[in-house]
């Protein structure tokens, strides 16, 4: 048995410290506020959040939202995001089409932002969540635990930024309304893209990051 507890000292950074978890101590911790409880407690005494030592259905919810997000992402790329009417002539552009247009206007920086937010981030996020869930499910990873923790933090932080393109469509279609001369309308892909982003955010939120560390703990104890 290792030492009971470590102290939360300010600004100390001992990488790979040997610690005891609440679960190993036969306790249950609140993920909302950090308060520790006896295992028979069902609601946090401090913040009233529902307590669970490990969320057994977490992975099921992760995969369900992940799949929903992936399904919604397909029409988001196939159907038009924007319908532009100029002098009675209508053109429709998809997400990737919009990026190509920006490159044609030589707005490379903005093209990069849109491409990053609407293509790179969503795809990277699908891969990252699948990898995290897979590695936890099959207890593969005893190595790279800290790296996977960082990956999870990045996924949670960056996922919401995919919404940029939906807002661009909203602003353009409210602003460019000159009837016959020029008008912009949102395309159906805006709905599926927004849903895809929301579903993958829910997928990432359903993931219980404590599971990343559980495999590691089994080795150390």
């Amino acid at each position: 048995m290792m030492s009971a507890t470590q102290t939360a000292a300010p600004d100390r950074d001992d990488g790979g410290a040997r610690v005891q978890t609440a679960r190993a101590a036969g306790l249950v911790a609140c993920t909302g506020c950090g308060r520790v409880h006896r295992p028979d407690q069902t609601r946090c005494l401090r913040c009233n959040a529902r307590l669970s030592s490990r969320d057994a259905t977490s992975l099921q919810r992760v995969w369900a939202w992940w799949l929903a997000g992936l399904i919604a992402y397909i029409p988001a790329n196939l159907y038009p995001m924007l319908r532009t009417t100029t002098m009675g002539h209508e053109t429709a552009s998809t997400i990737v089409g919009g990026v190509v247009e920006l490159i044609d206007y030589h707005s490379y920086g903005v093209a990069l932002i849109v491409f990053g937010a609407s293509v790179v981030i969503p795809i990277a996020k699908f891969i990252a969540i699948a990898y995290l869930a897979y590695s936890v499910q099959f207890r593969r990873g005893k190595k790279g635990v800290l790296a996977r923790q960082h990956l999870y933090e990045v996924v949670e932080f960056i996922g919401r930024w995919s919404m940029i393109d939906v807002f661009v469509v909203a602003i353009l279609s409210s602003l460019v309304q000159f009837n016959f001369v020029a008008s912009i309308h949102p395309g159906i892909a805006a709905v599926s893209f927004a849903s895809s982003v929301a579903f993958t955010m829910l997928s990432a939120q359903s993931f219980d990051s404590r599971m990343i560390w559980d495999a590691n703990e089994a080795v150390e104890t």
Binding site: A4, T5, A8, A22, L27, C30, R35, Q149
Partner: peptide, 24 residues
């Protein structure tokens, strides 16, 4: 099992990885 653990309200658990710390 839990007798060597200090009082529960003096502990905090990391919300991310469940590690126990003394709340200083």
């Amino acid at each position: 099992m839990t007798q060597d653990i200090p009082e529960l309200d003096r502990l905090i658990a990391c919300p991310n990885c469940d590690a126990l710390h003394l709340d200083m």
